[in-house]
Design a protein around this nucleic acid. Sequence first.
RNA 1: GGCUCCAUCGUCUAAUGGUUAGGACACGGGCUUUUCAAGCCUGUAACGGGGGUUCGACUCCCCCUGGAGUCACCA
Length: 486
Amino acid sequence: MITRTRIAPSPTGYMHIGTLRTVMFDYYLARQTGGQFIVRIEDTDQARLVEGAVESLLNTFKKLDLDYDEGPVLLADGTLGEKGDVGPYTQSKRLDLYRPYADRLLADGNAYVCFCTSERLVEMRAAQVAAKQNPKYDRRCAGLSLDEVKKRQAAGEKFVIRMRIPEGESKFIDAIRGEISFNNADVDDQVIIKSDGFASYHLAVVVDDYLMKISHVLRGEEWISSTPKQIILHDMLGLPMPVYAHVPLILNPDKTKLSKRKGDVSVESYLAKGYLPAALINFISTLGYNPKADQEIYERAELTELFDLSKVSRAGAVMNIEKLDWMNHQYLMKLPAADLILAVQPFTTLDLASPVLQRALIIERERVSRLTEFADKLGAYVELGGYDPAILVWKKSSKEDALEQLQNISTVISQLPADTFVDISLLEAAVKEYISSNALQNGNVLWPLRIALSGLEKSASPYELLWALGQEESLRRVQLAFESLS
RNA sequence: GGCUCCAUCGUCUAAUGGUUAGGACACGGGCUUUUCAAGCCUGUAACGGGGGUUCGACUCCCCCUGGAGUCACCA
């Protein structure tokens, strides 16, 4: 089976998190079947164009390490190019391709020219609503004679082209939901060519899906109700229908469609918050979809192999940020050290070329769930913050004891062979050896030592801190602690 | 309001006629422990309601209820 899929992000300047899920499903499906994964820019609404939106979108694909087979590409010099042989892949560049289809619809009587102004349309709908009718075009222009149409067009009157919805029923098999049918009487005479000459989404998508040989159309659930318009268009034009699959919505905690007002919606904002691309993808791919009953973490290849459209849930899914945090932490823990450094660097002004900070990263990843949280943790390794010397005293001990322990441990540290500092467990063994051979309590030694090294009431263990800071700096901090307490 | 979709723990989900209704996040308890994490063990928590079909329904059908989406010259 050869599968072509497409993702149609609107050029609003960012990628919606729901779009990412659809993209991933497209991706898995295409890769699994050896098909093509196509990116197409659907920008037929000239009013909503945003400068640089396509570039930023493609950039997001890059950040997520998502490769596609055909579509617009970002060239080395920052301009846009294309790959694939059924382009252009941007709908605003395909206007001439849509025109003949609209003409055919017109010639067959399946569409008609409409001169109604948007003012009249607004009034008409208001009146319909007032009369408790459903807003729908009243077909005032549906019966216009060819002569009159020509005359008014010649006079320069603005017009649109509407499809003439036939009587009957429209149904299709949704790959996720099964059969869905609509009574055509409920479908409005949709505008297919706007007064600015651009095709509307409905015409463009039907024509493009055909010309680009798209086999599967995956999109959000909000598209279900407009699907009959496209079904009818396929029918009128005699074009083969793709497989439709309407993916459930991603929801706010209150179960309404995810919105900017109630949470983050863009992929970019999640990346900026310090979620790893792989973790985000894992999370979003398994939201409303679960290939195995008792597994949460999946490699991309595994997801690709297991993906099954028919197992996608039909109900909307609330974003569980806490689970995303947990998952990101899992990914953080297994990230190779070199990759960890690369990932964290953009989130801190500190230079992670420093060996101390690189060791700190390894230690602190354990108590962090997002990349942004590292910045805070790292500070104490570079520079000891000011702290109240009183916290050096363990709750079960005394100031005098703390001073004694600090002095002794300082000696111990200074006498440790340099190669003890290459391994946390060697440091732990050395400190514990000191404690047991002197018949001391762990807390009496470990607490003041840890506070002296970190300056913090809550921190990593003293062994980890010794390892990260190194012999010289550790010694300096312990001595500093002794002086400030005495 | 019309049309359409949907309905298992708080959240994400598993179960495809027979299970003590499983897993994950979060939450509670315990172990470990110098603190914070992590880790390990463990607990609380769900089939929206009513009718059918069936020897037997979370699973199939109908109704109700509830929620959501959509009703543009936006996608």
